[in-house]
Nucleic acid binder design. Structure first.
Lengths: 233, 233
DNA sequence: CGCATTGTTGACAAAGTTCAATTTGCGTGG
DNA sequence: CCACGCAAATTGAACTTTGTCAACAATGCG
């Protein structure tokens, strides 16, 4: 079996930080390498948390469904990062959010019992998990504040800013993002209509350039400044 | 010094769950008992996370300040619960949210180094911390969903519902809450004006009874049902 | 009793959403 | 290589919800 091996992560996993290569070998050896197709849902909010994952290749993201049937996009997951944490924690038996593969994904998957065993053997994993948990918490604090104290344009600008750093492809004349208006809207919690109008306005101001399923942000910082200062326009 | 002792918690602390009484003695012996006056701020968002706390008596709550100067109320903290988790976790050196005493509070306080040491000696503490972290996360997921998919009346009803269970004093004819309209508004993320209007409406429908600094909810469930179903009125 | 805090009410404004009608861009298969 | 068809994006106009502000009323503490 083509095992991705330790090296494929470049040692860049916060989850495995501080562990010896031998220990990492042991930990990874206990996992099943799995593959997920683009678009496939990996964990489903509310379903039994039976597996814990480490993404080695591809791109995934967390999302939620609202009671009124809309979809909300949360954090992105990059190689080296773990997800499905509910399976790692002692009590919660259900995933709290859903996860989907945005590109084809390669992961290590541990089942619940295995990963809990590993946590007992290597408490450093617990440490690291706690650290990751606090990153999530910080993300949510930020998101919460943004949601209740920023306007639609400011939220959208913030989203573009974040995505530029996380997913942006640097091209001549700025940073290019492969996202649809709908994705942006679902991340910023606005409607696609509002997103379209705002992007149009910013395009007219020369801050961005729109294409179908793609946005070119000339300068993320400038855009954010613009939105945070300018009351209108 | 009047040390509260293990018993004052009734063994009801999730943080200390699964540890032997002897171990708990050790852990508590490493803490300083402290007292905080009603209204005093215990941790401040953004400031150095030097201490980790276990509340033994009184009532506290988390809050945040928005960039535009408003105050947002988050979770309540009851005896047996811990707060100031940033001091417990490896990396974040700053508190992510603020904490204030709503009533006079008695706490155990560990300084950062001490509690990190204890975590190394008793990995079960890490386990428990992780469990608590996932409770926080779940709270935030719920709050987030509520915030983006519920109307102002629904959010206020939800807040009243939650508070009824967490802080409610059972009296004849319902559950009584000691909260101001402003507190309710800051929890539900609406303005005090909207809160006043909604409560007035619900009083007229016989769902609640208002007093200065106090609300009597006749039936939390009924109120929530009402708000979630009724589109208007 | 007086005063500060808390709550109320109305008129109005603003920000976003909704919906329907179109248009645009892009990959595919003939 | 072109035309078809679908998904994505656009635009305007009406509408809803909630916030804003100012004036005022009530509550209860000292």
């Amino acid at each position: 079996m083509a095992n991705p091996g330790v090296d494929s992560l470049d040692g860049k996993s916060l989850f495995l930080e501080g562990l010896q290569p031998v220990q990492i070998e042991t930990i990874l050896a206990a996992a099943k390498p799995l593959h997920f197709r683009e678009q496939s849902v990996i964990t489903r909010e509310g379903s039994q948390a039976n597996q814990f994952f480490l993404l080695t290749k591809g791109r995934a993201r967390y999302f939620l469904n609202t009671p009124d049937g809309r979809k909300v996009l949360l954090m992105w997951i990059s190689p080296g990062e773990v997800f499905g944490g509910a399976a790692f924690s002692g009590r919660p038996w259900h995933y709290m959010v859903s996860t989907e593969a945005v590109q084809d994904c390669t992961v290590y998957a541990w089942d619940r019992a295995t990963v809990r065993n590993l946590a007992r053997r290597f408490p450093r994993l617990l440490e690291n998990a706690l650290l990751i948990a606090s990153e999530y918490f910080q993300w949510y604090v930020d998101t919460h504040i943004t949601l209740i104290s920023r306007s639609a344009p400011q939220r959208l600008a913030q989203v573009l800013f974040h995505l530029s750093h996380r997913l942006g492809r640097r091209v001549t004349g700025g940073v290019e993002l492969e996202v649809t208006n709908e994705d942006l809207a679902n991340t910023a919690n606005i409607t696609p209509f509002t997103a379209s109008r705002l992007l149009g306005r910013w395009q007219r101001s020369g801050l961005v350039r729109k294409h179908r399923g793609r946005v070119l942000v000339h300068s993320p910082d400038q855009l954010l400044d613009h939105a945070l200062s300018a009351s209108s326009v």
